[in-house]
Design a protein around this nucleic acid. Sequence first.
DNA 1: CTAAATGATTACTA
DNA 2: TAGTAATCATTTAG
Length: 342
Amino acid sequence: MDEQPRLMHSHGVGMAGHPGLGQHMPDGTEGEGRKQDIGDILQQIMTITDQSLDEAQARKHALNCHRMKPALFNVLCEIKEKTVLSIRGAQEEEPPDPQLMRLDNMLLAEGVSGPEKGGGSAAAAAAAAAAGGAGADNSAEHSDYRAKLSQIRQIYHTELEKYEQACNEFTTHVMNLLREQSRTRPISPKEIERMVGIIHRKFSSIQMQLKQSTCEAVMILRSRFLDARRKRRNFNKQATEILNEYFYSHLSNPYPSEEAKEELAKKCSITVSQVSNWFGNKRIRYKKNIGKFQEEANMYAARTAVTAASASAQGSQANSPSTPNSAGGYPSPCYQSSRRIQ
DNA sequence: CTAAATGATTACTA
DNA sequence: TAGTAATCATTTAG
């Protein structure tokens, strides 16, 4: 890049005003003239940094108005395209991020990013059903869940909109800037397009963070909603009585069969696993402190005796769910601290 | 308010 | 895999 201008100057004579500066050059003479023009322009570019601002501005204008400018600009763009941009272009076209897709799917499933109300309530209903809480005070919690979900959704959409707007503003700004600059340096429309792509990717990575934190919030809300420990309700008195009745009338072997559990569950309007939980808790707590349960045990023993008596008096045993070995020959806790629980 | 009671969960065992 | 033991988180009693 050192020799060429000089070389051109040595030959170039008076071709400055040549009208035919087309892309093709039919003969060497025309080529020489063009070369000289290019040499002039390059010279000006090289020295432009040495000039004052006003001077530079004037020169810039002159350069811009130069008849060779568009052609040279195209050439430079092409060169640039072939070198720098093609290298960068090779590593683009990344596949859609699987994690982002997962987040999107979840937000959609959770009704955060989907259609306004429909998806949300459906998901909430599904969650409510999964909670399995025998629908008593379920609706209150349900609406609470929905309210919180819609709050999350609102924040999400507001933020998303904000990001989108910022992205658009920034993109427009950069595009204007590049277009403006493309008057003085070789920037092809393709390159602008690519830059826009880069900006969008950056912003979408920010959006991913938003999506991620929204997902987290939904998960926490959901787990809170589903985790029954956090909103435990005691069983009603009747259910507790039925369970206790069974427990104390089967003290020697307080392990209800699957069928018995089902029956108890139905009677108490709770689930079978709740029955299992109850018996698990009862056995361990009874074993740990039999003394404390003495009174309760006596009470239920007496009650069972009475019902049994009245039942046998009527010649029927319709009461008490499948009672194989009730009070019969088993020691009431009054007489001994039965140790049949492992 | 604190402590006890209680339903659910977890890690482990036979 | 059902059951045990420890523990959590909540409700209820005092």
